[in-house]
Design a protein around this nucleic acid. Structure first.
Lengths: 148, 148
DNA sequence: ATGGTTGCAAACACTTTGCACATGA
DNA sequence: TCATGTGCAAAGTGTTTGCAACCAT
């Protein structure tokens, strides 16, 4: 398992480098770290969470730098910016963005929700002449632990 | 038509008063104005837009006051707070909240989208033990005018 | 070598808080 | 009258910008 872990890490770092180069962004420790953070996260991260991740990995990066990095990544389409009515942005890797989220209104926990089928709805809307490029769908309520 | 308009306005003011009293909130010009703004708006409004509406109606209200008012209204369930990835909140009257929105990524125009059917999806999710109280669904893309 | 990247300070936008004064019931 | 609502100033978040120093290619 140890070996397996190391292998995965290496793989991830390699992929991240490829992703950055593909977007004509220079490869830097901070960028690799941000990309890895979003790659490994179970839920969308906000900037503070990304910075915490970087710190734990021994990567020092200013908050401003992280903002600039995620903006660049989002511009290039590598990551996606989303909001859960918290008054701040969260980010997730585009490769993970084909699902939706459930947000617990009490504890703030975020859970993934499997891909849903709103293609028909989209088709209906497109008839009005609107060109839909993406949608965001989030559910709010109480998670298992917070219902008691 | 003129008469009809006046009649509607009066009606609206009357309804707003009832709504406020029902929520045990005192009736004040600013509160009536905010409620009327959201009542008559075609799309969800942000705080600046609400203030502009109030100014046009001759109602003077500080930005802070408007924030406090919409927070009170939202706490009481009279209004709903939503976000379109703009980095700020928008608000709409709860009575109008049974639909979704299309946001043009180029000109920012917001259009209503008729009620969609995601009840099945919700049922599916509830099976996991999550209690869904509400959801938010927004579509992003290019409106008719911005596709050229 | 050099253009893209970063850190730091400062600015900005949106939202909240504290407190004295004003107002609705 | 008296709890509640409001205005103003100030502070709190989250995010962006300017500029000099730094570093990846």
């Amino acid at each position: 398992m140890q070996l397996n872990n190391i292998y995965n890490m290496t793989n991830t770092r390699h992929d991240c480098k490829k992703e950055l180069r593909g977007a004509s962004l220079k490869v830097t420790p901070a960028r690799l770290g941000v990309l890895a953070a979003l790659e490994q996260a179970q839920t969308p991260l906000d900037v503070s969470e990304i910075i915490t991740y970087l710190e734990n990995k021994g990567i020092k990066a200013d908050k401003v730098t992280v903002f600039r990095i995620i903006n660049a990544l989002t511009d290039k389409g590598l990551t996606k910016q989303i909001q859960f009515n918290e008054g701040k942005f969260r980010y997730e890797h585009s490769r993970k963005a084909d699902h939706h989220h459930f947000v617990c209104e009490r504890c703030g926990k975020i859970e993934d929700v499997s891909n849903c089928n709103i293609d028909e709805v989209e088709k209906d809307i497109q008839k009005k002449g609107l060109l839909i490029k993406r949608h965001s769908l989030e559910f709010f309520g109480l998670c298992k632990d917070c219902q008691s």
